[in-house]
Each structure stands twice: as structure tokens, then as C-alpha cells.
Amino acid sequence: MQQVAANTAAPAAPRRDPAPSRWSYRLHRLWLTPLFRLLLRVGLPMGASLALAVWYLGDPATQQQIIDKVAEIRRSVAERPEFMVRLMAIDGASDELGDDIREVLPVDFPVSSFDLELDQMRGVVEELDAVASVDLRIRPDGILQLAVIERIPQIIWRLTEDLELLDAEGRRVAALAHRMHRFDLPLIAGEGADAAVPEALALFAAAAPLEPRLRGLVRMGERRWDVVLDRGQRILLPEQGAVAALEQVIALDQAQDLLARDIAVVDMRNGRRPTLRMGAVAVTELHKIKAIELGENYR
């Protein structure tokens, strides 16, 4: 019997080359490059997730689904009874103004407080002429509370055809059907008169002694005031220092009874040279007197 040698069965496998192949060497070097590592560690996951998100959200059906879902959740919260507003309460406004406000704010109660745009509603209400300011808030018991401060009419402005009520700052409050409805308020006229309402009010205050005869103020050329009295008398005031000029005239009137005489116009426009224009009768009389004084025959 011949014995087969044990170690001839399997020839030794060729020894593996310990050297890395060129490509594995290059890949290893690439892998050790810091920028590449960063790109792979941060850039790749970021890019992949971004691409996934874009792919998913790019579908319009998905977008619609998401929008619907969000709207549904929002509605379910907004329609809870805690957030519902049932009625509107208006404080500090006359009935008429209250009706106007209800008209410009068409809100169908009950409504969720999420759907009320208070800033926008405030803007709408403040656009009303009669409203100076308004404070909107939703009370916890579901009431939309409007605290309104009304404009107070201080003066009447006569335009060519109709009358308007203005407040102390010259802002329009409302139209006026007839002068007699608000006889307590002073009257101004003329183009651009509303821009000088504070001055007009000061003049009216100064003209208190002339009150029984005072008809009103007329704005001339959008720059100065005329005081109009009955009998067609006028006091022409300068642009600057109108109140002082008026007080000067009133003082003259109180001292010498100036305005009771037949004078058509007191011209105070030039402060250093006040001028009087007499009425036609007075002028004739003056001429007569002069003629008598001179011994001439008048006429």
C-alpha cells in the first residue's frame, strides 16, 4: 500500500499581495480628503432628503392634500365655542353712527374670532367721517366690543350747494341739511376753509363781543379770513395775526362805536395802515358837510 502524502492534497494558495491596487489606493486617499468627507457626511444626506422632499411635494395632489388637512385642523380649532363671537357691542356712538358702523362691518354672527381681522375692521370703521378713533377687542364671553370716540362737530362749512359739519381739526363729520338744524354752531365759508378751522375757532372766540351781529367767516383765496357782519359789513383780516387784528377792531368798536356807523369795510390787511371804506350814504353826507364848511353849494 502506498500512502498518499497529506500535504499534497491542497497546494498552498498563492500569497495575497499586501499592496493595495491603484484604484483602492486612490479611493482611500479620496476618502481621507477632508472636503470629500464633509461632502459625504453632510452634503449627501442633506441632498438626498432635499431631493426626497422635492419629489414628494412636487405632486399637486399631495400639495392639495396637505393644504386641505391644514385647513381642516385650523377649522376644527377655530370653531370651538371658546373662540366663537356671537354679537357686536358698540360703545360711545350715537344710534345713527352705530347703524352706520353695522352697515360697513358686514359680519355674520356667530363667527370664529380666528376669522375676524380686527386691524382691517378697525381701518374700515375709522374711515367713517364721524369716527375719531375706535378700539376693537373680543371679550372672553364672545362679544366683539367696539369702543368708539365720535368726532364732535364744531363748525359749519358752507359749500356752494350744501352744508357740512366739521370738527375742531377741520375733519368732516357729517352733512347738514339746513343751517337752522344746528344754529348753535358758527359758520364758515370759502374754498379751503376746512384747512384753517382751528384759526377760525380762535377768531370766533375772539369775536364774542360781536356775537349778535356776526354772520360768519369767509376764507379768501385760501389764505386769510373775512369776518362778515350783518348789514354787509366786513372786516378784512391779515394772513398773520388775524386774531390780534380782530381784537384791535373790537377794541376800536367798543371805544368809538365803529361798527355801528355806516362803514362797509374795515380793512386790516395792512397792519400799519388800517383802512375804512364808508357806505355810499355816509360818503354823500361827508361831501355835503365838507361843502357847507367851505361855503360852497353842494350839487
Binding site: 499581495d17 499592496a19 493595495p20 491603484r22 486617499r29 477632508p34
Partner: peptide, 18 residues
């Protein structure tokens, strides 16, 4: 070249830098 590559790769691996 292969021997150099072996040594360089191992050293880079230990240094953890390129």
C-alpha cells in the same frame, strides 16, 4: 511602486489624513 503604496496607505490610515 506597490511597496510604496502599501506603506503610504497604512501611514495615511493611521494619521487619518491625506
Amino acid at each position: 511602486e506597490r511597496a510604496i503604496r502599501t506603506a503610504v496607505q497604512a501611514a495615511q490610515k493611521m494619521a487619518n489624513t491625506r
